[in-house]
Design a protein around this nucleic acid. Sequence first.
RNA 1: GGCCCGUUGGUGAAGUGGUUAACACAUAUGCCUUUCACGCAUACAUUCAUGGGUUCAAAUCCCGUACGGGUCACCA
Length: 550
Amino acid sequence: MTTQELADLIFPNITKTIEDYEKMYPPRTLEENAKVTRFAPSPTGFMHIGNFMSVTIDYLLARQSKGIFFLRNEDTDSAREIDGAVEAIRHILEQYDYIPDEYEYRDINAEKGLYGPYIQSERKEIYHTFIKHLIAEGKAYPCFLTQEEMDSIRESQSRDKRRIGIYGRYAKYRNLTPDEAANRIKNGEKYTIRLKSTGDFNRKFKFNDLANGEMEFPENDIDIPIMKSSNLLPTYHFAHLVDDHLMRTTHVVRGQEWISSIPVHYELFKTFGFKMPKYIHTPLIIKKDGDKIRKISKRLDPEARMTYYEEKGYPKYALIESIMTIINSNYEAWRENHPDAPFTEFEFSPKKMSSSGALFDLDKLDNISKNYLSRLKATEVFDLLDTWSKTYDVDFNQLINKDKTYTISILNIEREQKKPRKDYACLSQIKGEIWYMFDELFTDVTYDFDEKLSKEEINTVLTTYFTKYYNEQDDKDTWFNKMKEMTDQLGYCSNMKEYKENPTKYKGSIADISNIIRVGVTSKSQTPDLYIILQLLGKEKIQKRIDQIK
RNA sequence: GGCCCGUUGGUGAAGUGGUUAACACAUAUGCCUUUCACGCAUACAUUCAUGGGUUCAAAUCCCGUACGGGUCACCA
């Protein structure tokens, strides 16, 4: 029996050839230097911050070069597949406007692009064609090692401090004759297909990673599995080879944890004589855990999941800006000079990417987000808040919509000016900043009056002010002059400089007076401008609150 | 244990043989101010993990050491 006959026995229904597929998926006709990138997550969990970094780069490279950015669903591990994962990924991509040029979702049947299917489980026939070719050529073989056998090999290798893996003399079935292999298959033995590696571990080859520069690796000599016995789908390595070749990917962006499989990918591409894509291995997002440093984990670290930021209501701009500063640290300087440019105009340089792990700094995120939100118009903030609260705080959503104009004017306090306030970094923090403006939330309040003040004093100030001085129609200057007038009248000092020089001469200062009114009306000792707050609340609400104190 | 990578302040980092070791965030203090916030100002690495070497000169080049990380599945 020949290897070709063995290949026919294993894949009797495969009649196409590699050449057929080369014709079906010809090289793309794109502009010079156009990059073809892909985001290729496996539907085994929710999107995390590391994925987000990769996909941001994918998107950026494709957009900047007038290339193609496509989405591929790497669902070859049926056992670990999680319901809803594909939807979650789609949701995130839509949220950040990273819309793939080519994609397909099983449920919506919307196929775009000529290089599909983009779902690996639907590409079985393609993979089998490539594997069949390899077997026919004697470059791959069925392996009948059982799990137990492999476990014991690994154990003994580890005990003897040898390299771990199925290679050399451990590759027990690599030299089986086609007849012997055929017999076992006919007997119904389970098998996996392994690459018959021709590499030499003692030989080195150079590899250039766009982010990390030149690296040297020993050649791969491990007979890695390329097709699983369980579902007859390829392993990641083999699917990467076939898909990125046939889909004509030019740039593969993935996490640094993949660097160690470069020798395998190098051999795979060499075996077929395909040109390798360029690789950008992104820094791992790390986390300090006590004095341990580790890769950030979806299970352990809530901030690793992209949904964390959605729940908190961070604007997408802030996330993109934050991740961009990690991707290229000169991004911040660029942003300073181009405050309004879309991030896709930034010239990304893989070389400038850090090759050690980076911590995703939540303080930095807050700062970026605060700055961004502070520059928006009140109506824009309202829209964001409205959308967010519809999902994450329904009661609050109803409240802010009860009197939309009122809510917007609250959000507009000290906004749309040269030095706008920066009170909140995310939408979920807004309620905590403005709740006291709503009577519905102004229940069971604890007043933050200065402990040194007597009840009588508070009462005096409040009644004096609201019976003798307060007038809703006053403009800001008149209002403040009246405040001063009352301050002096009550034995306080309306001039701060003077008060600071002789604090004992007075009962207190205009700051104390203001604060009594402030607390009386809002319960808080720290709020934005008092005048605006009084204006917005209006006479009726204020009166109610003053009565409530007494 | 093998292979690969890394180590500049609390964080992201600039820096590629001669700099007072940028910048941003965080922190602290002060100023401004009716509170808070904003803004402004100042402070924060005597030193670039460490030992040695090359050099007139090293964070920058070379070697060793230590430490840290990634990876070694029919998982991606």
